[in-house]
Amino acid sequence: MDPGNLSPQETKKLEEINIDLTMRSIAVTYMSMIGRCFDNCVNDMTSKSLTAKEEKCVKSCSEKFMKYQQRLEQRFNEESANLNGP
């Protein structure tokens, strides 16, 4: 991406787009976390509420997922910065 010579209007427009893409990305990540944790932790459909075991699993799963996502984004941003450069 070349941030050079953008007009104030262009900068503003790109900021709007960036916010939009970020929101969408958060939604994708959120849905992915829900899908995975539900799929992996919740299997007992004999009761309507989560069992203690399932709840514990969902907590661990989401905590782990968020740590995973954080690390992934860190590394991804480092690597994508190198992609266009040397």
Binding site: N40, C41, K59, E63, K64, Y68
Partner: peptide, 9 residues
């Protein structure tokens, strides 16, 4: 892996 003993990576 698909199992979660704790929330740590």
């Amino acid at each position: 892996p698909n199992y979660y003993s704790d929330g740590d990576l």
